[in-house]
């Protein structure tokens, strides 16, 4: 599990979470305050703040903060600007809004170790609360008064929905399946991280090349993050995840481990086509994935994306934040939940 640090970095260990801690400290309070003060309707407050209790991994705001600080440092400023901090908040709000809508769709019972929001409130109200969070986030965005940033962040929202549509069903052939899966993964997960990185870079007023670097770092880490997520669905205990295992199979979704396993066990193809609906499909697919080297291949692909992300960050000026971005990429690979 030990990953070799590339380059000649100082020996002292940097903890990205500690490094982002100060910036992150009041962030969830501030998001909740935004959502609470923006409505006169009391019931909307607990629903819209349900997943913003600060108990999540907060991976999106952390990456956004670290990227912002690394780029600012690159330009010789050791600060986090107000607008960059707003982007970090918006990243978590968009994510939270999509979680609410996911829960309406998936009808899951638990998330993050507590009852899913749709268990506590009706679907219609949860759907509205999701729209509400997005609207409040867009208002915050407009106050930054930066056209490019607004365009960049809106891209996330359209990507999320298109990714969801891709997941709904597809007519692609076996050859196209993996490309389809990667595009879907980009849209559903990586786009948010990539475009938030891009937005904070735009706000730092760096050149286009640097903005592209920020975007590519986010894209690669985002893809790796989801690949590992899909992997953990097969190996982690449901206790560690805070949700049931093999959840994707049960939802009829074929993720990277299954798609890789297909190469050795073609019988999986039929199961993928019928979305694991027949009795015993989920169990059988689960076993075949473990028998194949689909899990190793998935991890390998995730590592490749992390290596790519790290290569990009090497070109940034050396700073604790730059190093933290590298460590974050490794943490994404080695996380257990």
């Amino acid at each position: 599990m030990q990953t070799q640090m590339p380059g000649s970095l100082p020996d002292y260990q940097i903890d990205p979470y500690r490094l982002a801690e100060d910036d992150l400290k009041d962030m969830f309070d501030d998001i909740r305050l935004e959502l609470i003060t923006n409505t006169t309707q009391e019931e909307l407050q607990p629903i819209s703040t349900y997943y913003l209790d600060g108990q999540g991994k907060a991976i999106r705001p952390i990456l956004t903060i670290l990227m912002a600080r690394a780029i600012n440092y690159h330009k010789g400023r050791n600060v986090l600007s107000h607008s960059q901090r707003q982007i970090a908040m918006i990243s978590e709000m968009i994510h939270s809004s999509s979680l609410l809508h996911d829960d309406v769709i998936d009808q899951s019972d638990i998330r993050r170790g507590k009852p899913s929001v749709n268990v506590v409130w009706s679907q219609k109200k949860v759907a509205m609360a999701g729209d509400y969070i997005l609207a409040v986030a867009c208002r915050m965005l407009s106050r930054l008064q930066n056209d490019e940033v607004t365009i960049t962040i809106s891209q996330i929202v359209t990507d999320l929905v298109q990714g969801e549509f891709m997941q709904l069903g597809s007519k692609e052939t076996e050859n196209e399946r993996f490309a389809h899966y990667l595009t879907k993964t980009y849209r559903k997960t990586a786009s948010l991280i990539a475009n938030c990185s891009k937005a904070v870079a735009i706000l730092a007023e760096v050149d286009d090349h640097m903005i592209e670097m920020a975007f590519q770092y986010g894209r690669n880490v985002g893809l790796a993050f989801q690949l590992v997520d899909d992997l953990l669905d097969f190996v982690a205990s449901s206790e560690a995840l805070g949700k049931p295992t093999a959840a994707d199979l049960k939802l009829g979704l074929a993720t990277a481990p299954v798609l890789f396993a297909c190469e050795r066990y073609p019988e999986l193809n039929a199961m993928i086509m019928r979305r694991f609906q027949e009795h015993g499909d989920v169990k059988r697919a689960f076993e075949l994935v473990h028998k194949s080297n689909g899990l190793e291949q998935t991890r390998f692909l995730a590592k490749k994306h992390c290596a790519e992300a790290n290569k990009i960050v090497q070109s940034f000026a050396k700073s604790p934040y730059q190093k933290a971005l590298i460590i974050m990429a490794d943490l994404v690979i080695n996380r257990m939940k």
Binding site: T39, T40, Q41, E43, K125, C138, S154
Partner: peptide, 24 residues
Amino acid sequence: ASLRNQDLVFLISSAVKDLCQAEF
């Protein structure tokens, strides 16, 4: 967003916010 006018984004997202509030 493509209209590149942030006052507009503010106005219209406020309207979306209100539509959501109506359901409560």
